[in-house]
């Protein structure tokens, strides 16, 4: 029997441990909560709140909306103050009111609606084509090792080409029409989808795939039962990236060669020195991009809830 075997009661063990650690067994030791412990109690308090049906402030809808609009309103106020106080000349930065007037003027002439509509249409068509091709090629490359070897390096090289480099070629091939712009946007939308889909498919839980095969699933049925649902969340985040990229490529396309659209408004206003319209176009691009992104974001939330 060893020394520790003889310690039978809990008190004896405690005394033994204390003495071996060089502590007096009578002396109480003050303990301060370590940061990790303190953080844990905070987290547990939050859990307690949610268990009692209290929604924390940062999870309430009204707070999310108000909180998100605070910074834009602040920027607007600073902009107004800077122009009203004459800190910069109106030719450098027009006042918010003059930008608004320029917007109303364009709207009354029917140009603003037309420009926003044609730009949105180009983005949606280009995005749809690019995303679909990205899904198909991403699935092929992600599922087949052979396709990965044959196709992936080429696509990787094409991906490395900057967006503006395509424009001369596309204009020569497809002329200055809708086709060349939509093709450019499709190229922009293709790569985020292709990359996320192929990478996600390569990392689908092998155990789940094997279980699917063991229960008689293969080919298209295995893909639709196991692999596709497993990668859906990644696919949607790829779509979201692709949509953002579509707006980038839209402006690239419209800046170079166009007769309408928000990019045309930008380049046309630059030539005419209409800085109020330039700012208007930038704000419209920001708002449109954010709105479409939020719509996809809502879809993404639903997918994540349903498929994970």
């Amino acid at each position: 029997m060893t020394h520790t075997d003889k310690l039978t009661t809990a008190d004896e063990v405690r005394a033994g441990v204390a003495s071996s650690a060089g502590l007096s067994s009578e002396q109480p030791v003050a303990v301060r909560a370590r940061p990790s412990v303190a953080a844990r109690t905070e987290a547990s308090a939050r859990r307690e709140d949610s268990a009692r049906g209290r929604v924390p402030l940062t999870r309430r809808t009204w707070f999310v909306i108000v909180g998100g609009s605070l910074l834009p309103l602040l920027l607007l106020a600073i902009w107004q103050a800077v122009t009203a106080l004459g800190l910069v000349s109106a030719s450098q930065l027009p006042s918010p009111a003059s930008v608004w007037t320029a917007g109303v003027d364009l709207l009354q002439r029917g140009l603003l609606g037309q420009y926003a509509a044609i730009s949105t249409q180009r983005v949606l068509i280009g995005f749809a084509i690019g995303a679909l091709l990205g899904l198909i090629l991403g699935a092929i490359v992600g599922l087949s090792r052979l396709a990965d070897i044959l196709i992936a390096p080429t696509l990787g090289a094409i991906r490395a080409v900057p967006s503006l480099a395509w424009i001369p070629l596309l204009i020569l091939w497809l002329k200055i029409g809708e086709e060349s712009k939509i093709t450019l946007i499709a190229i922009g939308a293709f790569f985020p989808v292709y990359t996320t889909v192929s990478a996600a498919l390569r990392h689908v839980d092998r155990q789940l795939v094997e279980a699917g095969r063991a229960f008689g699933y293969n080919g298209v049925r295995l893909f639709s039962t196991v692999q596709l649902p497993a990668v859906l969340p990644s696919v949607v985040s790829g779509l979201r990236l692709a949509l953002a990229q579509s707006w980038l490529f839209l402006v690239a396309a419209e800046l170079i060669a166009s007769s309408m659209g928000l990019g045309f408004l930008l380049i046309d206003s630059q030539n005419n020195g209409r800085i109020d319209r330039i700012i208007l176009a930038i704000i419209l691009l920001a708002v449109l991009g954010k709105v479409t992104d939020s719509l996809v974001g809502l879809f993404e939330r639903w997918v994540n809830k349903r498929w994970s």
Partner: peptide, 18 residues
């Protein structure tokens, strides 16, 4: 391969989470 006359109970549940 993946014989239909057999069924496997794996070490992990391997249920589809969705």
């Amino acid at each position: 391969p993946f014989d239909a006359r057999t069924a496997v109970g794996f070490q992990e549940p391997r249920l589809l989470p969705w």
